[in-house]
């Protein structure tokens, strides 16, 4: 396959970015999207030109490092798929592909397609944990947890923290990300203890990190490579109300 790529190039947060066009002359349908970009970069490097910077690491869809908006959709829009798991057989010979970074005030661009997602860290640091000490905890089976609750928590806990929810949200809101952690811990007895404090602190941290407000577009769920459900946002709202009126 032969493809034409329009790639966002930007030298840093203060540079004015622009789209530049590259050819990918010999793409195998079995390649992953990132492997296709690797080849483009190899060709650029051979010519002594600056390569396209993009974040990636595990390349098996779990670390959450890869972050690209492809043809206007975070991670390329294939259901439950990260960029690294997107394969070139989804494209056709002669296609033009737009590759752009996560764009949000909370995610300043480091270079080209790589962004700074420290804002998400701040949200977790505000309360995305149980305050248990290392050692001195009860036996794992001391508190039975219903299978339903355990499964519900696991559904929420699948979040990989990639930020696609923010990138796809018309408001750049991190509510799905925040709610996944709030919901996971609120439903488990170990996390319930601090549920009120947690939901207040985490939503406040999201605001302070310049993320926008949720207005129920549900774009985040559609873009989430792990299919995190917006029911967790409803759960967060419920937890918030409880905390408010307690």
């Amino acid at each position: 396959m032969k493809l034409k790529l329009h790639v966002w190039r930007q030298n840093g947060p203060n540079d004015k970015g622009r789209l530049e066009t590259y050819e990918a002359p010999d793409v195998s349908p079995d390649q992953s999207f990132l492997e296709m970009l690797d080849d483009v970069n190899q060709a650029l490097a051979k010519e002594g030109r600056d390569i396209i910077a993009f974040d990636h690491d595990c390349r098996e869809g779990i670390c959450g490092m890869c972050s690209q908006v492809i043809n206007g959709k975070a991670h390329g829009g294939q259901e439950r798929t990260t960029v690294c798991q997107l394969h070139m057989r989804e494209f056709n010979d002669g296609d033009e592909i737009y590759i752009e970074p996560w764009k949000a005030k909370a995610f300043p661009i480091i270079k080209d397609l790589a962004v700074d997602r420290t804002g998400l860290e701040k949200i977790i640091q505000a309360g995305g944990y149980t305050s248990c000490h290392t050692g001195g905890v009860a036996d794992g089976n001391a508190l039975p947890i219903g299978k339903e609750a355990a499964d519900y928590a696991m559904d929420a806990a699948e979040c990989i923290g990639c930020g696609a929810c923010v990138a796809s949200c018309p408001n750049s809101s991190a509510m799905l990300f925040t709610s996944a952690k709030v919901a996971q811990l609120a439903v488990l007895p170990q996390g319930k203890v601090e549920a009120h404090r947690r939901v207040m602190a985490m939503t406040e941290a999201a605001k302070e990190s310049d993320f926008g407000n949720c207005t129920n577009h549900y774009e985040c769920q559609a873009a989430c490579p792990k299919g995190i459900d917006v029911k967790f946002i409803a759960k967060l709202n419920r937890e918030y109300l409880k905390a408010l009126i307690k």
């Binding site: 966002w8 829009g77 737009y98 764009k103 005030k105 018309p170 809101s173 774009e219 559609a222």
Partner: peptide, 29 residues
């Protein structure tokens, strides 16, 4: 007030933006 904040949270949109779930109504509240 929320709309102003939300616009500020996305200072510059991508060249290509394709929505998958939301619609005209939600985007033009």
């Amino acid at each position: 007030q929320l709309t102003i904040e939300n616009k500020a949270a996305t200072p510059e949109a991508n060249v290509q933006v394709k929505r998958q779930k939301t619609g005209f109504a939600a985007e033009t509240m």
